[in-house]
């Protein structure tokens, strides 16, 4: 199962909230430097699965997992795994843009400062670099000291992406990153994701099938906590093997 290209390998993985099994026995390889989309109707466990990949679901005290998630061959749920380091290397961008109520600069510099980088020149460089990569530098170069909350919705979301990029992560998890945005901002973010995949592996949960079809290389379809079908996006959308997948994609439910 583990091949050289896989950055994440999910093996027989289940997640419980109390007694409720939110994600059931999933097998899924994630290829490095590609965009993988996870689609499915609301409540199918796709966000839960995504949040388990950098152990954000640890924050929900009743959650419990079974099985394995290998990140570059390392079991991230092993008791010796350093969660902090994992989250630095597997970043996350959320559904609703959530910049901190501080300046644009401070938002991006937050992660590097946590790592102990204090030198102003070095921080400046990291911030600029991250903002350039997030395609936001041109828009905010003059207002680095303004509040991150003063930006438009699309800019805020790119700020959150920049904040994540400043950590130099290998993977960024996107949890429906455009669901709160207008179509133009959505298009900007989609372009950005395609640029980013050269350097970062991207896993995106989306409710929007066209979005998955437009940007992703691989698509996984989940239904009621089960992984129904996984494959190259073209195959899934043009020639799905599973009846459920076909019904979902042709819009018969969901």
């Amino acid at each position: 199962m583990v091949n050289d290209k896989s950055i994440f390998t999910i093996n027989d993985f289940s997640i419980y909230y109390g007694n409720f099994k939110a994600v059931n026995n999933i097998k899924l390889p994630i290829e490095a430097n590609k965009i993988t989309a996870i689609i499915g109707p609301s409540g199918c466990g796709k966000t839960t699965l995504l949040r388990s990949l950098n152990r954000m679901n640890d924050l929900i005290t009743t959650s419990r997992v079974e099985g394995q998630v290998l990140f570059q061959g390392v079991d991230i749920y092993h008791k010796d795994t350093d969660v902090i380091e994992l989250r630095r290397r597997v970043g996350m961008v959320f559904q609703k843009p959530n910049p901190f109520p501080s300046s644009v600069y401070e938002n991006v510099a937050y992660g590097p400062k946590l790592k102990g980088i204090k030198k102003k020149s070095q921080l400046d460089e990291i911030v600029e670099n991250a903002l350039v990569r997030a395609d936001l530098w041109k828009e905010v170069r003059d207002k680095l000291n303004e509040s991150g909350l003063s930006l438009s919705g699309g800019q805020m979301q790119r700020l959150c992406i920049a904040r994540s990029l400043a950590q130099e992560p290998e993977v960024i998890l996107f949890d429906e990153p455009t669901s709160a945005l207008d179509p133009i901002s959505t298009a900007n973010i989609e372009n950005l994701l395609q640029q980013l995949q050269k350097t970062v592996t991207i896993i995106i949960v989306t409710h929007n099938m066209q979005q998955a079809a437009r940007i992703s290389e691989y698509t996984a379809f989940m239904y009621l906590g089960e992984m129904i079908e996984f494959g190259e996006t073209d195959t899934i959308f043009v020639n799905p093997h599973n009846k459920l997948t076909e019904e979902y994609i042709t819009g018969r439910f969901g």
Partner: peptide, 8 residues
């Protein structure tokens, strides 16, 4: 969540 996801 944002802070934890950045490894704080």
């Amino acid at each position: 969540e944002a802070s934890y996801s950045l490894g704080a």
